[in-house]
Design a protein around this nucleic acid. Structure first.
Length: 236
DNA sequence: GCGACAG
DNA sequence: ATCTTGTCGC
């Protein structure tokens, strides 16, 4: 009988799920973060029809420097460092098992950083996952850093329509007990809302505060938006 | 059995 | 995720 080792990423679905169930118990949903001086954004992109995985990490300085003497004040987060790591894609995309496909590359990218961020925003779900351990939680657990999941669409859970104003949000609940697993946030007026959820070592209120504080004029918060851009190798 | 389904 | 032109709006 094969034993699941924590350092194995290329697992069969059944083993990956078993590992998630075990790791989910280690995910911390309460705040345990140091003063933030650097925050990072992570995202994965693909090349050559998915054959190559591209992991991008962008580190930003905090607090932001205000740009524009007068309104509208635009968020000006200085890019302190950015890294891209490429490697052969190892797993296909399977809903619920995204972390096994993306986390290895993300970890390799983090290895190249010279500065360690105190907070990380990941493109994907945190605990808003069937087994409460989405890619943001899994990465946070591995890095032992506070993480927040910022997804562009829903994986699981139920929710109402958030108000029309930027900053309005509604809880994302799941399970028979309506467990609150995240928030559906209107990050931009007249734009489909984003899904914010705690990754690791961050509570939902804190996650929402940070994501809101990092919103520029775009739908995605700066960390994730910049990482997205880098991962998809799109200029400006 | 029938949908739903991060990226 | 990725493949892609034009187009509507601030």
């Amino acid at each position: 009988m094969p034993t699941v080792r924590l350092h194995d990423w290329n697992l069969a679905p059944v083993d990956a799920i078993a590992l998630q169930k075990r790791l989910a118990g280690c995910v911390e949903r309460t705040d345990r973060l140091d003063p933030v001086r650097h925050l990072a954004g992570v995202d994965i992109g693909f090349e050559q029809n998915g054959a190559i995985t591209r992991a991008a990490v962008v580190v930003l300085a905090w607090p932001p420097g205000a740009s524009g003497e007068f309104e509208p004040a635009t968020l000006e987060l200085e890019i302190v460092e950015q890294v891209v790591h490429r490697e052969p894609t190892r797993m296909p995309y399977v809903p619920g098992l995204l972390s096994f496909r993306e986390v290895p590359a993300a970890l390799a990218a983090f290895d190249q950083l010279t500065v360690t961020p105190q907070l990380v925003m990941v493109d994907g779900q945190g605990i808003a996952h069937p087994r409460r351990i989405g890619v943001a939680s899994h990465l946070g657990l591995w890095l032992d850093l506070p993480t927040i999941g910022v997804a562009k669409s829903r994986l699981c859970g139920r929710h109402g329509e958030p108000g029309p104003a930027r900053g309005n949000w509604t809880p994302l609940v799941d399970g028979p007990q309506d467990e609150v697993i995240g928030a559906v946030l209107r990050s931009r007026v007249k734009v489909k809302p984003i899904f914010v959820s705690p990754g690791h070592r961050v509570s939902l209120p804190t996650a929402l505060e940070w994501v809101t504080a990092c919103l520029g004029r775009t739908k995605l918060p700066e960390p994730t938006r910049l990482a997205d851009r880098l991962a998809s190798r799109r200029g400006e």
